[in-house]
Design a protein around this nucleic acid. Structure first.
Lengths: 376, 376
DNA sequence: CTGAAAGCGCTAACAG
DNA sequence: CTGTTAGCGCTTTCAG
């Protein structure tokens, strides 16, 4: 059973290959219904399937969209990838998935490669502050949609971005905590999640200011400036933050907002390392609402991203050939999901550590440091 | 900057296109070094990149391998996908990822499509008991490697499988619990994880028998036979199992082995719903060692799959054009990772439920049922 | 309304 | 050792 070609279909239907091609490409108005039916019958009978490679060689394009995520090992990206595939499937596209590991060079190589493979466009999940490394391909016509990375001032004009409104998200998280009565709060993030961090952190600050708290007076945690944590290691960032914040500080926070759920979960783990209880001793709010947030003990309060809708939107932006506004940003409203990791602050502040068995081996001491002050 | 073709390179290097092609395809012995250098210089200068589509159209093959997983939304599959990509990258291949959602028809369509796209081969993560729906493509020459699905009697000859030794894994999990002193044990799995379940469950039984416990006397839980749980819903299976096992049963188990970590985590959640404590009240052992196992509270004891090595092996099997033994099974040894979700059984058995606030709304009553008896 | 013809960029005989 | 040649399967003007 060798490949059946358009020629064979044409022969079987008593037409020329070009007529078959016309049918295949929706130019049905160019033929009389009878012809059409004959061709369709032939296609069905022979089990004809167009050859992608040939088609692409001819037209230069495909029905594939590229998706670049930091790492599918992170459940949030896994879930998003899945949603994008669902959306793509619905319109007959397929998705080519790549992990950048947050490495700009790797990101660039993938983009270049996908472009040369003729993808329709790319959904890029990146939090790199600049898109300079991609300016070239974008200039050559690549349709690029960034996800979870709000548009930045220097971005190429044609790039559109789909993300949640991080400012709102940060505000929801922060004011949830202040409304519970917390007055000493910390924002925890790795240094690499830079683009989102800005918005989320600002929203967090806005929430504090709304109740006359001074954000600059809080012990902040902005990660290890020189540690290139990948995405899966986000949890480790959180864990170390917890160790640092609750071991040296005389007045530790009673509430914490983490840049994402993985970091939040790691933070919870770090609290436990020190005998502190999540929820009752320290409140923790995450970001994303990954599947595990609800499974955790205690279930994690978090800011939900509507990924299914976002995936559909992002795909639409990639595929839409129409005359869209370029440089557009689509911002969706995130949602606060209250679970059990947040509660009113304990009376009398955070208790002493309940255990002394923090193993030094758990931490590489040189990596630990707190950074105070403004994050912009 | 239009595409630069092999012709242009040939012209620039003063040779014919075929000589360039020869160089590109490693047939360097057919040319004098000087020629070779000239061509390489031209390629570098022009920034020539071969056109995949043309190459594929000509040769019929690509440098892509297909990967079909139940769902990248599940962290285990996400992590595996990532490892496979790492392995592929190292040998200049790319990975095309698809989610089957455990739907045989969807699985078949993807396989068919990947095959028509000319992938080198496919790594299929499936736990369907039969491969009949793929017999066709395999017969037409598809190189198929199954992962996490040990070879089954009726499988096509050419299929090779890479997986852990599930029997050993089940045994490790079971005997860990019996060596802690547990005597009432349960094995929890959804009905769909069928192929692995058999091996893991048998190993579990072997472990019980090794200490003269009678597996058939234990309250088993084999899921909702008629509920087509997807993969992300594995957690829900676990949760419901916990509700069912600890609400009606007069003599609930003190230790539980779950078919995978997601199910185990869900089970833990279910225990908590009932005021039971994981580790101290009921011991739980999972399977896979996903990133979240270590983050959980308490950290989950589990059977680790060496996914990086398995990914490399699976890729090797897909790519290897040599004269391999067909129908081969590669079984890797899993490893017990002891953490805090397992401990000696509580004296006096599992305590009464500590809270009465199990909300009926958490469960759809009609879905809840226990199934006793043999699982084969 | 339908067909003939000319490639897209590359590879692999087969000649020189 | 290198060049000529004939397509892979499809699309798309351009004529009938």
């Amino acid at each position: 059973m060798g490949r059946v070609t358009i020629q064979q279909v044409a022969k079987a239907a008593n037409v020329s290959p070009s007529t078959v091609s016309n049918l295949l490409n929706g130019r049905t108005e160019r033929m009389v219904p009878a012809t059409r039916e004959r061709i369709e019958a032939a296609i069905a009978e022979l089990g004809y399937r167009p050859n992608r490679a040939a088609r692409q060689l001819r037209t230069g394009r495909t029905q594939t969209v590229g998706l670049i995520v930091p790492s599918v090992g992170n459940p949030f990206w896994g879930a998003f990838a899945r949603e994008l595939e669902v959306a793509a499937l619905a319109v007959g596209c397929s998705v080519l998935l790549c992990n950048s590991e947050r490495d700009p060079e790797r990101e660039r190589r993938y983009v270049e490669e996908l472009w040369e493979d003729g993808v329709r466009g790319i959904v890029l999940c990146s939090s790199l502050p600049t898109l300079d490394h991609l300016a070239d391909v974008v200039a050559r016509g690549l349709r690029l949609v960034t996800f979870d990375r709000p548009a930045q001032p220097g971005d190429p004009d044609s790039v559109v971005s789909v993300s949640i409104d991080n400012h709102v998200g940060g505000f929801l998280a922060g004011s949830h905590l202040t409304s519970l009565g917390h007055e000493r709060l910390t924002f925890v993030s790795g240094s690499l999640a830079s683009v989102n961090r800005t918005g989320r952190f600002r929203g967090f600050c806005t929430a504090l200011e709304a109740v006359d708290l001074d954000p600059t007076a809080m012990p902040l945690w902005t990660g290890f400036e020189d540690t290139p944590f990948g995405d899966v290691e986000a949890a480790e960032v959180g864990r170390r933050a917890a160790h640092a914040l609750f071991s040296g500080t005389e007045e530790p926070p009673t509430g914490v907002v983490a840049i994402n759920d993985m970091t939040a979960l790691g933070f919870c783990r770090g609290l436990r390392d020190q005998g502190l209880r999540v929820g009752s001793d320290v409140s923790v709010v995450g970001f994303d609402d990954i599947i595990l947030a609800d499974l955790y003990d205690p279930p994690l309060t978090t800011i939900r991203q509507p990924i299914a809708r976002m995936a559909a939107l992002a795909l639409g932006e990639v595929l839409d050939d129409g005359d869209r506004e370029p440089g557009r940003s689509v911002l969706l409203r995130p949602e606060l999901v209250v679970r059990e990791s947040s509660a009113p602050p304990p009376v009398g502040g955070v208790p002493e550590r309940r255990t002394a068995e923090v193993r030094a081996s758990d931490l590489r001491a040189s990596d630990v440091s707190t950074t105070d002050g403004a994050v912009r």
